[in-house]
Nucleic acid binder design. Structure first.
Lengths: 205, 205
DNA sequence: ACCTGAACACCGTTCAAGT
DNA sequence: ACCTGAACACCGTTCAAGT
């Protein structure tokens, strides 16, 4: 056997990632396995290891693609010229929608995945930064006058918080007697946090 | 073979949970397997299935114990008579410390775990409620005058946010150029959110 | 050069059979 | 009644061997 060259290395790479995404979409992250991916694209498991270091490597790349899609989705949902609280809510609601409609894929973004204790790949950090950047930009209006460092911190704090609400809601860890939507809770967070930050800023001037 | 009765069913149950916790502490959640747990307590895998429905059942019970320990830890770190912002920060810092020192165990609390799409066990919900209850109580001072429903919602929003910051920090998903501690970010959240909620409340009266 | 097939060391779960 | 041992259907990863 051996030697088919039906596909280039790059093609196999892309096919594998697509197959992996389909598996995750259909059965959650538990449904993802190297053997299943290989079977789906019509190659042997061994071939996968010609193109990925290991399954973790494949997951990083899959997550990278998810971050790209998420970033684009956030941009699409942002009304032109929107800024401040309005923009923040649009971003947050788009984020919630993404998490709710593509739950498995979204969930993988923040799972351990780094089975090793090493740092994230730097290109992954950069993709994360692009997402946070949208929030930072939307905060620029409401927090005008804050130093850039505070602005940066505030955007990370706010977005990690939105993520936390989203996560616990989807994982059903919130112990709420129904009624509350993720959107309502997020709204409470954004309005509260923003009002508080503005007050504290003006108290200083 | 068969029939040893060195231990009662209940004893095997406890031994297994202890062994599972040790495995997780040593090697993360990936190091947990039914076969390893069985080996550690000196029984065959089959025996484990006499005492647990499956591995997921074991994980739920392990998480239940973790929630108990966490709840106690939070109470211990709360100064007697502390309330309001002071109490909230004590709770949050204790939570962060727990997450940082018992990362693997803590992380399992919010992973999928419900591979099935069913609801959480009701006793698990109740344990979660006990933890949120501490936050709700601490918020009672600062948000005096709010209706109970708003208070309840605010406590969930705030704690989910603290969790989100904690999670993204530990999973290194925050894209921060160092310097910022989890505590500093959490402090920004608590102070901001509290100030905002108080302002909005007084604006209404 | 490219890919396979088999091997290795693991999994979770079940259940007939032993004591 | 309690526990075992073997079986079944899976894993991730490696690598000699085939074309």
């Amino acid at each position: 056997m051996g030697r088919r060259s039906d596909h280039s290395r790059e093609e196999i790479h892309q096919l594998a990632l697509q197959a992996a995404e389909a598996l995750v979409a259909e059965g959650g992250y538990q449904a993802l396995s190297a053997r299943k991916v290989a079977r789906r694209i019509g190659y042997t498991v061994g071939t996968l290891y010609l193109v990925f270091d290991n399954l973790e490597d494949l997951v990083w790349q899959l997550n990278g693609r998810t971050l790209d899609v998420l970033h684009q989705r956030l941009i699409d949902r942002l009304s032109q010229g929107a800024s401040g609280e309005v923009a923040l809510k649009q971003l947050a609601f788009a984020y919630i929608e993404f998490a709710q409609t593509q739950t498995a894929r979204w969930g993988m973004l923040f799972e351990y995945a780094g089975g090793s204790e090493s740092d994230l790949p730097e290109w992954y950090q950069e993709k994360l930064g692009r997402v946070f950047g949208l929030v930072e930009q939307a905060l620029q209006g409401p927090l005008a006058g804050c130093d850039p460092n505070t602005l940066r911190r505030a955007s990370r704090v706010l977005w990690a918080s939105v993520h936390g609400i989203c996560l616990l809601r989807i994982r059903q860890r919130l112990d709420l007697a129904g009624g509350q939507t993720t959107e309502e809770m997020t709204q409470m967070l954004i309005e509260g946090f923003l009002a508080g930050m503005q007050q504290r800023r003006s108290a200083r001037t």
